[in-house]
């Protein structure tokens, strides 16, 4: 029981990281980024590349993936979105457009990387910490063992991913509530046309949000090989639906909501898997539908409207 709860929180924090980029993109632009899962997949491949080519701790892939995908996101925004926003029904067409994009990403990755499952030895993650520890404090070199929480051992990558997620969510919070660009972003989120009327450069703000959203997704992807065991180019589609469940569970346009949604989702997932394992696959979908029908604004819905 304790194990399921703690593992649920660890996974939940990671799931929030997975969902938060999608939340940002949908909240700001009303665009359904169906390629979200594929960005995650690409982030995982960056981690694979860092380990395979440079042979260093995959944690170094985090800043790399973030920077690469912020740039890619801003570029992609200018190519795709203004044209899309001009069409009759951007919300619907965005679904189809980004489905096309996800097909392209998946195909290109398959052409270059093949369809085989890839994984990284989990002891490679976090080696940078043990190396520092050995250098400064002495002691034994080698990979990090299981980390003890409440007397139960958990794989180190889970804990590292959860901590990184916490830091990332904190940074998103700082960005949205304590920077000028973040304030503008929230303005665009609540009323796009009014923001436009007050002279906010909506396109610039949206491009930034799109880039950050993709960057965070790629960062989440770096940990995907550790959290899910392995990745394939086709991994993206499932990840997208799961992210949606988390985002809707929390609420749109509220990073704290997504964090809560992720934790709730992680706890449910772990509990169902412990007690009713054959029904665990159904959970994200049923949860998503129930939440959409009963409380479309998400668990923290009212707060968004006030803010």
């Amino acid at each position: 029981m304790t194990y399921a709860l703690v593992a649920g929180v660890l996974f939940g924090l990671y799931f929030s990281l997975v969902g938060i980029g999608l939340n940002l993109v949908f909240g700001v632009m009303r665009i359904v980024n169906l390629a979200h899962g594929d960005i995650l997949m690409l982030g995982a491949f960056i981690a694979l590349g860092v380990v395979g080519i440079a042979g260093i701790d995959p944690l170094f892939a985090v800043p790399l993936a973030f920077v690469v995908f912020v740039l890619a996101g801003v570029l992609l925004y200018w190519v795709l979105v203004p044209r899309l926003q001009g069409s009759a029904n951007p919300e619907m067409l965005s679904i189809i457009l980004f489905f096309g994009l996800s097909q392209v990403i998946e195909a290109v990755t398959t052409i270059f990387a093949g369809t085989s499952e890839r994984s990284i030895q989990s002891r490679l993650l976090g080696t940078v910490f043990t190396t520092i520890k050995v250098k400064w404090f002495g002691g034994k070199a080698g990979g990090a063992g299981p980390i003890q929480i409440f007397g139960q051992g958990f794989p180190a990558p889970w804990v590292i991913a959860a901590i990184t997620s916490l830091i990332a969510i904190g940074l998103v919070y700082l960005y949205l509530y304590h920077t000028r660009l973040g304030t503008l972003t929230r303005a665009v989120m609540s009323r796009r046309d009014e923001a436009l009327a007050t002279g906010i450069d909506v396109d610039r703000v949206s491009a930034a949000a799109f880039g950050i959203g993709l960057g965070i997704a790629a960062v989440a992807g770096v940990f995907a090989p550790f959290m899910f065991g392995s990745v394939t180019p086709a991994f993206g589609a499932d990840a997208t639906v799961t992210s949606f469940a988390i985002v809707v569970l929390g609420s749109l346009g509220n990073p704290l909501g997504t964090a809560l949604g992720g934790v709730v989702y992680g706890l449910c997932y772990m509990l169902v898997q412990t007690y009713l394992s054959s029904w665990a696959d159904l959970l994200p979908y049923v949860l998503l539908i129930v939440i959409l029908l009963l409380r479309p604004s998400g668990l923290l819905g009212r707060r968004v409207r006030v803010a």
Binding site: L84, F99, G100, Q103, V104, I105, V108
Partner: peptide, 13 residues
């Protein structure tokens, strides 16, 4: 799949 994805994107845009 690649051609198809590009076709879909071109169609929407």
């Amino acid at each position: 799949q690649l051609i198809y994805g590009l076709l879909i994107m071109g169609l929407v845009l």
